[in-house]
Design a protein around this nucleic acid. Sequence first.
DNA 1: CGCGACGTTGAGGTCCATCAATAAGCGTGG
DNA 2: CCACGCTTATTGATGGACCTCAACGTCGCG
Lengths: 216, 216
Amino acid sequence: MHSQGNVDNTTGSNWDALLGQMPLPAFGVPMPASFHPAGSEIFSPGSDANCFYVVKFGCVRVYRLLADGRRQISAFHLPGEVFGFEADSRHHFFAEAVGATSTLSMRVSATADLSATLLPLALRGLVRAQEHLLVLGRQNAPERVAAFLLDMFERQGGLERFELPMSRTDIADYLGLSLETVSRVFTRLRGQGIMRLVSLRTVEIVKMQALSVMCE
Amino acid sequence: MHSQGNVDNTTGSNWDALLGQMPLPAFGVPMPASFHPAGSEIFSPGSDANCFYVVKFGCVRVYRLLADGRRQISAFHLPGEVFGFEADSRHHFFAEAVGATSTLSMRVSATADLSATLLPLALRGLVRAQEHLLVLGRQNAPERVAAFLLDMFERQGGLERFELPMSRTDIADYLGLSLETVSRVFTRLRGQGIMRLVSLRTVEIVKMQALSVMCE
DNA sequence: CGCGACGTTGAGGTCCATCAATAAGCGTGG
DNA sequence: CCACGCTTATTGATGGACCTCAACGTCGCG
């Protein structure tokens, strides 16, 4: 599919503001922005990992598959976040646009500056992955969903109402649950008055404290 | 406990050989080797993360706890491996010696060289953590144990007979299982002729192919 | 030899996956 | 605007994988 067209700059995005927060120039050689339709592939295992990406708008899922199709999403990436760096010159994962998404890609130039810029990002990703290991290894379904909601809440600026860009299936594959279990936990949390669903994909946290306590 | 005594150099370790493989001088300022008795703490959350560590001999577990004591081990570190770098100046995890262990610690010096050396290590750690997410999120008990055995096999030089430095409880907390389930899967793998237990902590892989297939 | 830590095995219960049916959103075209 | 079909989400019923609790066995060490 046509996933590499130039970006439509008429959309009102907060990209310029994000640029100011990020040490972007040190990243490498900027390349044209790319637009990715919903569900389109950004990279896949085995492809060249010679650049990495900044989400401009939309959402990206990074995942691995087992031979029989079981999927584990290791991370969602929201606007302003960087993804796509790898341990060697080939990708080990899939990356896809969750909804309509735009990214900037940066060609890697092997300079010391680049390392110094990338290291903190890699380390933060490492800590995030390790925290996610605790969720998948030792927390039950309600705790996992609560952790996910809190994470999305914090990453979208801490407003009690926020969007879930991804489907229940995506959430399930991120949390190591079935989509039915995710749906049931949502229903339970609504019943307890902890959250509301303004729409299917719009969450409003009502009892923040209760949600936090669930994650210990 | 007395976890910071100097190392006993009379033990025959393969450290010198490992040194040759690793870009150690670029790491930072070497500090005296430390000996850690079995079970002793190496660092804990909140403590200063101003140095990182190379395992000389023994084994280290890195983990997080939930408030009620549930534990998730995010990684075991074997001789020659580096651990302890963090996203900010404080540790977010516990690190403990599994058995009698010796480490070299390196004080972090904020140079570009250091970044260039550390980045590949951080990226490899990131890929490892993301692969572990797939195991915890989407594989069942036999698959998890098989993945663990294969990993230990490969990291100990690919000899069909190797040691497990850690207890069943540690393995369980690494794989997100109960210790009983780990034990039962071991028994099952023995019954299938896939592995043998030379001793409680010495594994011999008999049907490597069958073990690999289990992980897909 | 005896004690304590570690490991194995068994019985029973629970949480969650699976299968299945219904309902709700959403775009398309009449 | 509504009808239609498709995708996504919810809800229910059932079974199974794994956890928990408990007993027993085994190893290592004083």
